[in-house]
Design a binder for these strands. Structure first.
Lengths: 177, 177
DNA sequence: CGCAGTGGAGAACGTACGTTCTCCACTGTA
DNA sequence: TACAGTGGAGAACGTACGTTCTCCACTGCG
C-alpha cells in the first residue's frame, strides 16, 4: 500500500466515523481499525488528529458541493433544485446534519485548520448560491433557508423540512423584482 | 448551603461552561470549581453527567423561550420582532449559536434525556411561532429562517444574519393570503 | 464532654485516548 | 547467506476525566 492509497483509505474511514459519531467520540485507533492503515503510517500522513479532521472536512466540502452543483446543473441550474437535492440528502439513511455545523458545535475553540475548513465551506456554498441566483440579498436569504432546513431535518429526522424551505424559496423567488 | 442553592449554582456553572466550550470539553471538576459545590453534593443532586446536561438544557430552554416571548410580547406580538430579538442575541459577546444544535452535533447518539431535551426545545419553539403567526405552513417557514440565521450568525460571528432572515420574513409575511 | 452524623477536600480508581516507542518480520541487494 | 532498511502490530506513556472512596473537621444533641 502506498501513501496515496493510505491517504484515501484514511479519509474515507475518517469521514464515515467522524460524521456518524462526531469527531470527539472517535479515537485514532478506530480510524486505524476501519482504514486498515497502521498507526505509524497514519501519523506519518497526518501528524495529528487535528490535521486529519481538517483534511476530512476539506474532502467532505468538495464532495458535498460537487454533488449539489451537478444535481442542480442537471436541472437547468434552477435555484429551486437546490431544495430538491437537500430533500434527497435528508432522506439518506445515515444523514446526520451538516458536518461543518456539527463540528462547530463540538469545539469551543476549534483548531485553526478546522475552523478554517468550516468557514471555507460556508463561504463557498454562499458564493455558489449567489452565482446561481444572481441577486446577493435574495441568495443570502435562500442560503439561510438551506441551513435552517438542514438543522431541523437532522434534529427531527424529517426530510420534509426541505419541502417547507422549498415553498418559502418559491415565494421569495416569485417576489423577485 | 442547601440543596436548592446548590442546584442553582450547579446549573448556572454548567450553563456557562457547557455553552461556551461544548459539553464534552468540560469536566465535572470544572463544574465543581466554578459552582463551589463539592463533588459529593454534585453527584447527590445529579447522579451522572448526563443528568446534569439534560437539566442544563432544560433550564436553558425555559430561559431562552421566556426571553423571546417577553421581547416579542413587548413589541405587540408582531412576528417580525422575533428577528429583532435574534439580532440582539446574536450580538451578545458570548453568543455561540443554539445550545441545542451544538449539543446535537456533539453526540452521535445522545443520552435519552439529552435527546429529549433537544427535541422538546425545537418542538416548543415551533409551536410558539405557529401560535404567533397563525398559519402552520408560514410559521414553519419562518422557523427554518430562524434556525438558519442562528447557525450562520454563529459560524460567521455576524449578527447581520438576523437582518437577512428578517427581510426574507417580511417577504413571506407580505405574500400571506 | 462524648459522640453519631453530615459534608467537604481531594485522593484514588478505572478507563479512554492521543501519541510515541519497541520489537520483529520481510524485502531487496551484494 | 549477511545485512540495512522499511513497515506493521501492538505495547507503552502521559494525560484527562467520570465516578467513588477516604479521611477529617464540624455540628447538634445527650
Amino acid at each position: 500500500m502506498d501513501t496515496v492509497e493510505a491517504t484515501e483509505r484514511l479519509l474515507e474511514a475518517a469521514e464515515n466515523l467522524f460524521y456518524a459519531k462526531g469527531v470527539q467520540s472517535v479515537g485514532m485507533d478506530a480510524v486505524r481499525a476501519r482504514s486498515g492503515v497502521s498507526l505509524k503510517r497514519l501519523y506519518r500522513v497526518f501528524p495529528s488528529k487535528d490535521d486529519l479532521v481538517a483534511a476530512y472536512l476539506g474532502k467532505r466540502d468538495e464532495r458535498w458541493r460537487r454533488s449539489l452543483r451537478e444535481f442542480v446543473a442537471a436541472h437547468g441550474d434552477e435555484p429551486l433544485a437546490v431544495f430538491d437535492w437537500l430533500h434527497e440528502w435528508f432522506g439518506e439513511p445515515d444523514f446526520r446534519g451538516c458536518a461543518f455545523v456539527n463540528s462547530f458545535g463540538e469545539f469551543g475553540t476549534p483548531a485553526p485548520g478546522v475552523s478554517a475548513a468550516i468557514q471555507h465551506h460556508k463561504d463557498e456554498v454562499r458564493a455558489y448560491v449567489r452565482r446561481l441566483v444572481g441577486e446577493t440579498d435574495l441568495a443570502d436569504q435562500l442560503f439561510a433557508l438551506m441551513e435552517g432546513a438542514t438543522v431541523l431535518a437532522a434534529i427531527k429526522s424529517d426530510p420534509g423540512e426541505a419541502l417547507v424551505a422549498r415553498r418559502a424559496a418559491e415565494t421569495l423567488l416569485a417576489a423577485r423584482r
